[in-house]
């Protein structure tokens, strides 16, 4: 792992070659917003575009997404210029018009000084709930869980994550990683007694043999046992009672 130095907001810091800017910025206490970024995902898609920063390299300047821009020799990053603020504000306004009910987006809008979007808010048949179509849920399901139960459906403005043909997925294990990872809390997951409902399918929950709490879907246990060879007995108790 080759260590190199680069400059961010005038400060020289150390990083590993090809490490992403956002990681290092956060390690150094520099705030860059970002919704579709999750450190568990290997290569951030860079789709929400909120983490745009100025990258100065080899005499050229471009706006790049900090979540997947690789740090190399001679790089200088500026996170707080008027250009960065202007474009970021434009993106937040677009997101606010798409998901006017999202608290996360409302908060970002307030920070950027936007009261109301200048566009017609999406509602009725254009209603997107709180989903900003960033695709993090899909990446987590594929890379972290290893299941790929969901994918992007349609394209353009209609792009939305979902199970194939919007039917209950046979491969989904009900783990809910997508819902936990979602930056705008847009994936409905209902835990009701010993059942969990997500993506239109009901999962039977496994009860802890000590406290009796339903804590993990049976399908998820099956998946872990199958892929890791872990002993099924391990799941008798919930993490709190182990």
């Amino acid at each position: 792992m080759e260590k190199i130095k680069f400059v961010i907001d005038g400060k020289e810091v150390e990083a590993i070659r090809d490490q992403c800017v956002l990681d290092v910025a956060r390690q150094n206490g520099i705030y860059i917003p970002g919704l579709c970024y999750n450190p568990e995902v290997k290569f951030s898609g860079g789709s929400c575009r909120l983490c745009l920063v100025e990258a100065h390299q080899a005499g050229r300047m471009s706006l790049v997404t900090a979540c997947n821009y690789p740090i190399r020799e001679g790089l200088e990053i500026k996170t707080d210029t008027s250009l960065v603020k202007r474009i970021r504000k434009g993106i937040i306004e677009l997101l606010l018009a798409r998901v006017p009910d999202s608290d996360v987006i409302k908060e970002l809008a307030a920070e950027a000084g936007i009261d109301e979007p200048r566009f017609v808010k999406d509602e009725g048949e254009n209603y997107h709930s709180k989903c900003i179509a960033c695709g993090l849920c899909i990446q987590v399901c594929e890379e972290v869980v290893g299941v790929s139960a969901i994918a992007m459906l349609n394209r353009g403005p209609d792009k939305t994550p979902g199970t194939p043909y919007k039917k209950p997925s046979e491969v989904c294990i009900g783990c809910g990683a997508c819902a936990y990872a979602c930056p705008t809390d847009a994936i409905p997951m209902e835990d009701n007694g010993d059942t969990r409902k997500i993506w239109g399918r009901e999962f039977k929950m496994h009860l802890c043999s000590v406290c009796g709490k339903p804590y993990i879907p049976e399908a998820q246990i099956d998946w872990i046992v199958k892929t890791t060879g872990k002993d099924r007995v391990f799941f008798d108790k919930c993490p709190d009672c182990r």
């Binding site: 898609g45 860079g46 789709s47 929400c48 575009r49 909120l50 434009g90 993106i91 677009l94 997101l95 018009a97 798409r98 566009f119 900003i132 179509a133 695709g135 992007m152 349609n154 394209r155 353009g156 403005p157 209609d158 792009k159």
Partner: peptide, 18 residues
Amino acid sequence: LVGESCGKCTPCREGLRR
């Protein structure tokens, strides 16, 4: 372009239709 945007990034997906 609205019809052909892949919809991955916010500016293209949202900006074009506005």
